[in-house]
Design a protein around this nucleic acid. Structure first.
Lengths: 348, 348
DNA sequence: CTGTTAGCGCGTTCAA
DNA sequence: TTGAACGCGCTAACAG
């Protein structure tokens, strides 16, 4: 049972159609037909071929097949910066769950936030002839994606809009969510609110900062630059940034964070400071309800973000019904304000 | 800039080597050589070919190439049950970070805990001629993986040993970690300790239960079946199971959970019960330090688990130096006991 | 019902 | 230095 099959396999590779055909005493064409369920084959040969295939443990070579048929590879690239971030892994699962039923497989392209790596990965995906790409590009320089798209590879952006080229995208209501969360803090009486967010080059960070400042403006409050910290990529960096804000002579009474990394980092800083500071952040996350201090988050369905993105992509890859109009589509996922405190979870 | 290239591309696919060759007025062979950096080409033709390639936006077809070369596909399958579980996404990142420098790409195969899906996914990976598979199979029925391995596809198991066939694997010290954690609870004076764990079919769950019971045995304590709950796969299910234990007439004073899902679920049950119950769990996780009650976890390096697995796989795929002996290798990742409480983090 | 021819895109081998 | 032939594994299209 554990032993290899005979002859052919010893030559290194896996058994081919011809190996099956020879063993069954038919042409490779006949073998091909039988194994593919083509009815044009006598019951007798059908059995012989099937037996031969079983004996050899034959598995059709998907690549050679798609090469011949001129089909795609059935591969879809997923470009993210850090798969260990729950946001990206949930997104990945959402994407894959939609792709899988279509026979499409998700290929990981993790950029580690490095622009050079990102460009190389996109080129690699194109060279591998992926049928499409779902991307969360790190910066607004998306020339590599533009090139891929111009080369005929469908591209869908998740949580960022395309810059400098046309593509479908699924966005989160960054501006609206951030503004509403900030309004909420203002309504609670906070007047000195710190902002702890992503680098300026990141779309969501910028957009959420806009929502933040817009709410302050509307309330007639100035935006104090001293209270704004941007550029943190890890929870550790976020903790340091938040600590700085809390150490200011006139420290903020509330912090608004632009993503889960910064929120968690800020949480640690607040705990360490021991002072009571209100905390609000974009992105929901596991255990947000367990932190032991009131926390408000701008929540949205990350899984849906992934699913929608994949659906848009699939509609380009397999224009089942009428192909979608060439025009780029833009979907926006809504947000809701969720407050966790000792009283439990409260959705607004 | 946004416009397609000319003629050829309109025919649907991407430009091929021959398109480049024609445009450059040379044979496809010459084009191939130039684009691959083969020195055997005059400077003149070299330039013409390069110019033609640039103009067409030519990218070599990686698949066709590897088919011709008889090389592998450069694809590695990653079989996991739930990528949204931080354990698996960290593992994925560890795996991918080792594979990437070798030009290998990670293909996601998410089984959703379904054995049928798992089998289909493995077959699909084999059909796609992946160069290898890193797998965390859901159950002890690993016949599909055994078949793949027998067919010549290198397989490495992460956090589970192979069952019924030979393969490399990287394990966690499940037994030792669980026993030590249980001993720790016993040392604190706990005599009624509940166990909240994975289904019996899962290796780690069983092994960790063994460590748990072994510690009890050594202390001369009986294992009370009423205090053992197995089969929870989600935090929600785990919360219910833990609640049941806490509702027992003679409830446990401590809970030991066999993985991060169960620990988080049990945490919620303990909070809801309002009673003081010691909590210890296998797997470290983000915010474990922030739960507001003392928590001890059996921690290990998930990233390393992934990296080691990938390294073993790579050594089989690309036997750089002397190929590793055919004998299956088994690596065990150590654990450490980490306690989080108001005093901070304490490693033992 | 079955086999032959041809070729997907590419690169090795051999000849010119 | 360059090109022609051949084949990787597979399958449409066309014989037979």
């Amino acid at each position: 049972m554990a032993g290899m099959a005979d002859g052919r396999a010893a030559k290194g590779g896996k058994p081919t159609l011809r190996d099956v055909a020879e063993l069954a005493g038919v042409s490779s064409m006949t073998a091909s037909r039988v194994l593919r369920g083509d009815p044009r084959a006598s019951a007798a040969t059908r059995e012989r071929v099937q037996a031969a295939a079983d004996e050899l443990g034959y598995m059709p070579n998907h690549m050679a097949r798609s090469l011949r048929l001129g089909e795609g590879t059935g591969l879809v690239g997923l470009l993210v910066t850090n798969l260990a971030n729950p946001f990206y892994s949930q997104l990945a699962l959402g994407v894959d769950s939609v792709l899988a039923p279509h026979g499409l497989k998700t290929v990981i392209a993790n950029t580690k936030q490095d622009p050079v790596t990102e460009r190389e990965l996109v080129d690699d995906l194109v060279a591998r002839r992926v049928d499409g790409i779902v991307a969360v590009p790190a910066s607004t320089d998306q020339r590599h994606l533009a090139t891929a798209a111009a080369g005929g590879v469908p591209v869908v952006l998740a949580s960022r809009p395309p810059e400098g080229f046309e593509a479908d995208c699924v966005l989160v209501d960054d501006f609206g969510g951030a503004r509403r969360a900030t309004e909420d803090l203002l309504a609670q009486g906070h007047r000195r609110i710190g902002f702890v967010g992503s680098p300026r080059t990141v779309y969501t960070g910028t957009e959420r900062l806009k929502g933040f400042t817009d709410a302050l403006d509307a309330a007639g409050l100035p935006v104090d630059e001293r209270y704004v910290r941007q550029g943190q990529k890890t929870t550790g960096e976020a903790t340091l940034a938040a600590r700085e804000l809390l150490s200011l002579p006139d420290p903020p009474t509330a912090l608004f964070c632009s993503n889960n990394r910064n929120t968690i980092g800020a949480y640690h800083a607040i705990r360490a400071a021991g002072r009571s500071t209100a905390l609000t952040g974009f992105d929901d996350f596991e255990l947000a309800d367990a932190l032991g201090l009131p926390l408000t988050v701008v929540a949205y369905d990350t899984d849906q973000l992934g699913r929608r993105s994949a659906e848009l992509l699939v509609s380009r890859i397999r224009p089942a019904d009428r192909p979608p109009s060439g025009k780029p589509r833009r979907i926006t996922v809504p947000t809701e304000l969720v407050t966790y405190n000792s009283g439990g979870k409260q959705v607004r």
